[in-house]
Design a protein around this nucleic acid. Sequence first.
DNA 1: CTCAAAATGAGTTGCGCCCCTCAAAACGCC
DNA 2: GGCGTTTTGAGGGGCGCAACTCATTTTGAG
Lengths: 348, 348
Amino acid sequence: MAEETASAALTLKDIAREAGVSLATVDRVLHNRPGVRPDTVRRVQEIIARNAFQPHVAAAELARGRARRFAFVMPVGANPFMLQIKAYLGEMSAWLSARRLAVEMVITDVFDPSVLAASLEELAGSEYDGVAVVALDHPSVRAAINDLVDGGIKVVTLVSDVPSSRRHHYVGIDNIAAGRTAGALIGRLVGQRSGKIAIIAGSQGLRDHAERIFGFNQVMASEFSHLDILPLLEGRDEDDRSQQLISRLLGRHPDIIGLYNVGAGTQGVATALTEAGRDKQIVFIAHDLTAMTRRLLLQGTLDVAISQNPGHEARAAVRVLLSLARNEPILSEQEKIRIDILMRDNLP
Amino acid sequence: MAEETASAALTLKDIAREAGVSLATVDRVLHNRPGVRPDTVRRVQEIIARNAFQPHVAAAELARGRARRFAFVMPVGANPFMLQIKAYLGEMSAWLSARRLAVEMVITDVFDPSVLAASLEELAGSEYDGVAVVALDHPSVRAAINDLVDGGIKVVTLVSDVPSSRRHHYVGIDNIAAGRTAGALIGRLVGQRSGKIAIIAGSQGLRDHAERIFGFNQVMASEFSHLDILPLLEGRDEDDRSQQLISRLLGRHPDIIGLYNVGAGTQGVATALTEAGRDKQIVFIAHDLTAMTRRLLLQGTLDVAISQNPGHEARAAVRVLLSLARNEPILSEQEKIRIDILMRDNLP
DNA sequence: CTCAAAATGAGTTGCGCCCCTCAAAACGCC
DNA sequence: GGCGTTTTGAGGGGCGCAACTCATTTTGAG
């Protein structure tokens, strides 16, 4: 009727006894400290593995004394997505302090590689155990990340990755897949109709935007080649500019049936659509769930919001940094960020 | 540049000093133990609140000595969704044992109210700190749950809720919203076409199925009233039976354009569709992500899988039970289970 | 004011581990 | 065999709290 899933509670002392060594030696092996003969190391490790021994995290955490400090390197300005991440970190404050974890924000211009790299270099000397960074993929940033890693600091890239660096983990979505998802949804939702598809991004220079565009075009070319994709517009993630660009575009093309906004500025695009009176005829897909996109979804202007859960990203980044600092395995399933497809009826 | 998010690390001793009482009194207040005058209680609590004091969980966990034991009451048989939940619990075993948590499976016939109630009553006397149960909503089950709660055991309903009981938490999705989502997707994906929509469930008697059907019909009636919904079929979650029912239905109705499978038996439905050669013309929506539905999505037979993440549910149930046992606040955002819309391009 | 009951203080022990010191033993080299 | 070096043992202090005992003080009812 009842099956055990967890084993008994061994302690370091049990391991020491079974291996026929002292506590000190087990401790040395466990923490890769020098001064133990290779075959003693092997023997102890084998006993640990055979018994699936896990040091009691609570005891370890308590014994270590000093609190762990993590830095979150985030962009300046009022980017709503980043503000949400900060807000969720704030919601965790009780959770964090009960675990004696300190999370500090480091605000910097993450879009300027040299400024970002300098900010990261500053952290290298400091007392941080881990750093989460919204990173631009640039050689100097990559070097700064590698320096942090070499200094023994755990590094997680957040939202935007630097795959060529030696960062320990990336917390964010696969943006190519997100673009593919947007393409597939537009293609499916326009149905039998034929016409033109508009696409607007913040800038092609941003890695995440470029990847989404790539994935989008990939799907459109291979599966919906009968649809006519208009040249990419760049709205710089600004509402006003996006609105103007889309208004003009709608004026010129009465046969637009789909519209994909890759970045921010969704409010501007929506206004242009509504003012033209074409918000119900055009399938409109954008990114991220905010109060604004939620409203647009509910009123039917926006058909789908593709979103990565900022709360999940914030918590995952903290958990991953903590697991890395503890040399614990990471629950990869848990920390993987999903591409959420949000429509009116499955809004969280 | 850097803003603090966490406060300094106070201890019980600091609180005692600031309140002008002894450690023993603070301890009594913290654990609601008797023998403290009301205004002393208030004074101490005020100091705790003012300093946002959080007892060090690691120290508390270590001091308490005995491990916590949780029971997961799950259905007998080879229900793939439940097997996934069990598998994910298995993946957590290192995480669990590092925290000295024991999770045990209690397999029972959750579809028979009296058997389920009896299984729950058995747990009431035992040493469990918490119970997660896939519950049938029935008066005797409700009573058994309430008995557990009265006995000081934390109770979480999993996947299927018993809202009328005094369970501490529900870990699962809103099935009405899931049905609405299915309806909205079918309505949108069939596009301009008109025709009939088929719907097959395991049984109308199952609460989750009934709720999904309700949500589905709601959306179809209000937003896609031009579509013709065929009478509900009951496939009993079996592949063979579902296949036969759908085959016959397809033969009788050449104008079916959409198909919603509310429960299991998706393989059977898919086979019927493929054999009739109509898998590409009919919009097919089903539930849950398994190896099988993943394959069907990739080959295009299945258009959308609506899913609740079983790994997330397993982990959330454990975390919620643990937080409840520790009298910690629950991160409700984190523990909320989302309705995932999975298409070929956003498969995890 | 008296006395029992209630409230509080003071202290102890132990949870399992980290991190440190120092001494003892084993080892390898010549 | 003697030497220095490496490896190992033994032990202790301390982390913050839970849970307990027992003595002492305060309180309120009569």
